[in-house]
Amino acid sequence: MVNLPTNVFTKMKLLQKLHLNENGITDWNDSCRIFGNMTSLKHLSLRHNHISVINETSFPDDLLSRLKKLNLARNPFSCICDQMWFRNWIQNNGLILLEYPKEYSCGNPNNMRGILLRDYKPTDKICNPWNPLYTMAIVMGIVVISFFTVGSIAAKCQGNIKNYIYLLRVHHNRKHGYIPLDSEEDYEYHAFVVYCDNDRKWVHNDLLNKLENEEGLQLCIHHRNFIVGDSITTNIDNFLKKSWKVLVIVSNNFAQSEWCQWEVDVVQERRRRQGKEVIVPIILETIDSKHMTSQLRTLLDSTPSLRYSSGVGTELFWKGLLESLRKPLGHPPTSLLYSRI
């Protein structure tokens, strides 16, 4: 016999012993059609054939679990990596293997001929060498993932990154000769706050709480400090003179307010007299292009701003704002540093 017949033994449910010794059998496919359904088989012998490789598809799993004796002696086994499964199986099930290990030897390759199959010990490292292409693929994958991760973080936290770079530049320039001046003591307020009435909640709940209650600064806001009876223009003029710097709270509501645009013109005049560092714009939200006026664009283009960010970037924003408010006038302005980012 050279080939094992299909759908023949599978009909012999009561067959207990099957001897196919000393034939020319080399290998076979579809083991279920050859050995399947042999529920009574206990002893299978394929001794002295031309079988070179036994692998996990050679016999059905349920057949191997039922066999009491299996004889594959005197076959010319190939001691190659394809034989690894059979070597591992022998370690756990060798007791049912007849004439093992004496009659199980390597028939090829030539340098292994005559060596007992027991002494052929393939390893994963030898049989499954690491392909350099895998390393290249992994590195490329890491680079691509890192690129998209950094890109998405940078896009999402652009304002925070700019604020952080801004603080680094301020710290660097302090080491090169910044001398704190006490000019803020000449003013009654640390800052005059220009904002839209629709943003009053953020100004009162967040800005005032942080700068006045926690940091001890004094701010001038029109809802609280303007003198009743004086005109708005008079109040603005008088309290701007009492304020060291100007905070401009920029939002879409601010951009749509004609009154706020007039205030921008007023503070721009002070900026022209005292320098860029006297004004600190705070952007609460991205301004829609349809709301951007020429006055506001001029302010934002000529005076670097701090972007408010809730969550992870909040602490960084407040730190940058305090640095801007406490920075002395008369030195190279922090706004100049920020504009170079």
Rank of each mutant, 00 (worst) to 15 (best):
N29L: 12
N29T: 15
N29S: 12
D30F: 00
D30R: 02
S31C: 03
S31K: 00
C32Y: 01
C32M: 05
C32R: 09
C32V: 09
R33V: 04
R33G: 05
R33T: 11
R33L: 12
I34C: 06
I34T: 08
I34L: 06
I34Q: 06
F35R: 10
F35A: 10
F35M: 08
G36P: 04
G36E: 08
G36K: 03
G36V: 03
G36D: 10
N37R: 10
N37K: 11
N37C: 03
N37M: 07
M38T: 11
M38R: 03
M38S: 04
M38H: 01
S40C: 07
S40P: 01
S40T: 05
S40G: 08
L41I: 08
L41W: 01
L41V: 06
L41N: 03
K42L: 10
H43Q: 09
H43A: 09
H43M: 13
L44C: 03
L44Q: 02
L44A: 05
L44M: 03
S45K: 06
S45R: 05
L46G: 08
L46N: 11
L46I: 06
R47E: 15
R47G: 02
R47M: 13
H48R: 04
H48W: 00
N49S: 08
N49R: 02
N49V: 07
H50N: 13
H50K: 14
H50F: 09
H50V: 06
I51K: 06
I51T: 10
I51P: 04
I51G: 03
S52Q: 15
S52V: 04
S52D: 08
V53K: 08
V53G: 04
I54D: 02
I54Y: 01
I54T: 01
N55V: 09
N55A: 11
N55E: 11
E56L: 10
T57W: 00
T57L: 07
S58Y: 00
S58H: 02
F59P: 03
F59V: 03
F59G: 04
F59H: 01
F59E: 05
P60Q: 07
P60S: 07
P60D: 15
D61V: 11
L63E: 09
L63N: 05
L63R: 08
L63K: 10
L64S: 09
S65Y: 02
S65W: 00
R66I: 14
R66W: 00
R66E: 14
L67C: 05
L67D: 01
L67Q: 04
K68G: 12
K68A: 13
K68I: 14
K68F: 04
K69R: 11
K69N: 14
K69F: 08
K69I: 13
K69Q: 09
L70T: 06
L70H: 05
N71W: 00
N71G: 05
N71T: 07
L72M: 12
L72P: 03
L72S: 10
A73Q: 01
A73W: 00
N75M: 14
N75S: 13
N75V: 12
N75D: 12
N75H: 09
P76R: 13
P76N: 15
F77R: 06
F77D: 08
F77K: 10
F77G: 09
F77A: 13
S78C: 14
S78M: 13
S78I: 07
S78D: 15
S78T: 14
S78H: 15
S78N: 14
C79K: 07
C79P: 07
C79S: 14
